[in-house]
Amino acid sequence: MELKTFPATIDSLDAIRQYVKEKSQEAGVDKKATYNLLVAVDEIATNIILYGYQNTGLEGNIDVFSEATPTQFKVIFEDDATPFDPTTRELPDEEDFNLPLEERPIGGLGIYLTITGVSDFSYEYKNNRNRNIFVVDIKSP
């Protein structure tokens, strides 16, 4: 696994996306799947930075691990903020999506895009760290 560490500040979002994009392309993930992965990592990084660190007054880092095999590209975010499992968030459903914009609930879109944007998204709390795991299956050309 390769590791790169970013300060858990909102200014890091762009750099995290650029880094994951580079690794994803190196791994052979196609353009569309890479884009959807970037939306997913951006959502989770935003949550960690805003709710894990900034709003609680904590300072820290996000460790971004990545690993590629011929069939799979995996990204893992690890951080030391308060345990938070994004998968427990209530997801918007078809009914919400059909509501007129002015009546739509404003939350939950990010986690929806995260879960639907990768082949598998999971969360675990291990060794006192949050671990958000993104897996993208690589389609053979």
């Binding site: 970037l38 939306v39 951006d42 959502e43 935003t46 002015e102 879109l109």
Partner: peptide, 16 residues
């Protein structure tokens, strides 16, 4: 070239 859910939320916010 990129839009996250934060961008979508601003669209919803605009209408509201």
């Amino acid at each position: 070239s990129f839009m996250s859910s934060a961008g979508l939320r601003v669209l919803i916010f605009s209408k509201q």
